[in-house]
Amino acid sequence: MSERPAVSLSRVSRHFGLTRAMDEVDLEIAEGEFFAMLGPSGSGKTTCLRVIAGFEQPTSGEVRIFGENATGVPPYRRNVNTVFQDYALFPHMNVADNVAYSLMLRKVPKAERARQAEEALEMVRLPGYGARRPAELSGGQRQRVALARAIINRPKVLLLDEPLGALDLKLRENMQEELKSLQRRLGITFVFVTHDQSEALSMADRIAVFNAGKVIQVGAPEEVYRRPASPFVADFVGSSNILPPDFVEAVAGEKRWASLRPEQVRVTEPGDANPRLVGRVTAQSYLGATTRFAVALDGIALHAIVPAGSFQPADDGRVAIAFDRSALHFMDGPA
């Protein structure tokens, strides 16, 4: 981590009445990073973004942007810009005026404004759209305009609130690529909020996983995926099997929580396997290259993903499961 993080939050809390939307959050985002804040709705990720933007003031704690204290600084004096989930394009202005809004405020001459607006529109691959009204654009185009408007000043940090949430699947995949390449070209820090783990895993350099107002884990996608810090992360990021301590003790000799990826579970004939690992197939679904089994063991349910056609359970559905001990990832409590 660089000496001066782009954004740092120390012990930041934001309470709404009795609700703790953010509870003592510590976070450092490095310069030039593509950073994801991931969590279910109500986990505090959006509040965190709004605190960085300045729309919300922390109840306690300190926000620093490139080392400067931003606590209590209005959003309009922070060199941080936001792409809103609903894009928030001004309906009474055309695209060019939307994009050049901040330049208009700074009294940049008209011709210069038009030039820079066109340049920003080119960056988001919408050249020549300046004269249109936001209402005439498709959802994907509106988002590009919102992006152009937010990057025209080359902010130090760009915040994106669920940037792909309102787009359909195909557009979403294109836009993922485009956001990444835009970030590389601009070299500015991107911070985005999402509830979609696959989006976070595929786009971000690092991910912070939020739950109930707290940051549970921060790390690179692979790290968060392979070594979740808690059963919550294991469940939310990917869909790991979560094994409770007494089960883990019975099969691996250690009384701790553990997670186990479905693709690391093997399914076999019951034979003379450890009785704790023998159960019954409750569902089976064909996924093309793989087959997914749901297996009910004594007291817990597990998922296994095996190569298609590699195994067919007997009519009574009785099977045993197996996995390497090294596939178990041990975790602390169920937060």
Binding site: A53, G54, F55, P74, P75, Y76, R77, V80, N81, T82, F84, Q85, D86, A88, L89, F90, Y101, S102, L105, R106, R149, A150, N153
Partner: peptide, 15 residues
């Protein structure tokens, strides 16, 4: 009037 319009304006530097 979407609340985010006002926030967008402030975000872009307007008091």
């Amino acid at each position: 009037l979407s609340g985010s319009l006002v926030e967008a304006s402030m975000d872009l530097g307007a008091d």
